[in-house]
């Protein structure tokens, strides 16, 4: 039944956005995680990408998380000779997490999540009305 499919598609969309929110939380929580040995890499920001996938059991195309990758951009250096991760010159590699980028990503995930929820609510009320035809 198409109504059930629509509900499942929205639910998958919400699940994918939840993974994205989780990754944002991981990034923000690790915004100050540096390495523990001299010259070691700090935390690298995680990224999420989505893809459309045909679900043959459901008979519809759903969305899912394609992969959680790592941001390969340069880790900014900070002069802090007392840090255990400081290299010979006294510089420490810091995570390439930008709180502004993460907040923006969080807002976008939130917005997409609510959109999926709105579709689910509309679908649910349609289903209720169809059942109401029996009364």
């Amino acid at each position: 039944m198409d109504i059930d499919k629509a509900m499942t598609i929205s639910a998958r969309g919400m699940a994918a956005q939840t993974v994205r929110l989780r990754v944002v939380a991981e990034n923000l929580a690790n915004a100050d995680t540096t390495g523990s040995s001299p010259g070691a890499d700090a935390y690298r920001r995680k990224t999420v990408s989505f893809e459309t996938r045909m679900d043959s059991a459901l008979g519809a195309e759903t969305v899912r998380v394609k992969q959680v990758g790592r941001d390969a951009s340069d880790l900014p250096l900070r002069y802090d000779p007392s840090n255990p991760a400081a290299n010979a010159g006294g510089y420490v590699k810091t995570p390439n997490v930008s709180s502004f980028v993460e907040m923006m990503d969080m807002r976008e995930a939130e917005r997409s999540y609510s959109a999926n929820l709105a579709v689910m609510q509309a679908t649910r009320s349609m289903l209720t009305r169809t059942i109401g035809m029996l009364s």
């Binding site: 039944m1 499919k5 929205s10 999926n116 579709v119």
Partner: peptide, 24 residues
């Protein structure tokens, strides 16, 4: 008409679920 609305709701749910899928 009901079959059409059911089907359309499915298609629209797909569009919204893929709000952040590149190239969709």
């Amino acid at each position: 008409r009901l079959a059409w609305t059911d089907r359309r709701q499915e298609v629209l749910a797909q569009n919204i679920a893929n709000l952040d899928t590149p190239g969709f």
